[in-house]
């Protein structure tokens, strides 16, 4: 069994030396809204659309290897988020997530309260992304965090 494992590892040495680089976008629904929708666009074409309620989870996750994206000179993903509460749709400002083809990169959209949920130093605050329409709440601590590497939870 061990030799099989070793053989499997040696069959694809590139994967071990240089695993595929990816862009990861995660969004977590604030507790004050019913659900969250995330749309990811690349050069005006829709790559991903998911709603937090549909998967019976508070989180939506988009992941794509760089190889599967047709990368050019300037590469940015447009992330559009919307909250749903009391049957209303509240749009947030679009965020342009920079793609770095050399290293894996993750963007995390969520409310930040460090005393309730500790952050490691890997997270870098990009900006606060609260909605202009405050009829469901101001969500002043809804932030975009950047992480070098892959975040999958």
């Amino acid at each position: 069994m061990l030799s099989l494992c070793l053989c499997g590892m040696s069959c694809d040495p590139d994967w071990w030396a240089d695993p595929p680089k990816s862009i990861n976008v995660l969004a977590e629904k604030p507790s004050g809204v019913d659900s969250l929708e995330m749309q990811v666009y690349f050069r005006d074409s829709l790559l991903y659309r998911e709603c937090s309620g549909r998967l019976d989870t508070s989180k939506v996750v988009f992941r794509r290897d760089y190889d599967s994206l047709d990368l050019g000179l300037k590469n940015e993903l447009e992330v559009r988020l919307a909250f749903y509460c009391d049957g209303r749709e509240i749009e947030l400002p679009s965020y342009w997530a920079e793609v770095d083809s050399a290293e894996s990169r993750s963007y995390y959209f969520r409310e930040v309260d460090e005393h309730k949920k500790t952050l490691s130093k890997s997270f870098k605050l990009q900006k606060f992304l609260s909605p202009e329409d405050t009829s469901c709440g101001k969500f002043v601590n809804f932030a975009v965090l950047k992480v070098d590497g892959v975040v999958d939870r």
Partner: peptide, 14 residues
Amino acid sequence: EEGDEYKGGNMPTD
């Protein structure tokens, strides 16, 4: 006292 979120291999030590 380390953050408990995303304990990846490239996480800088506090």
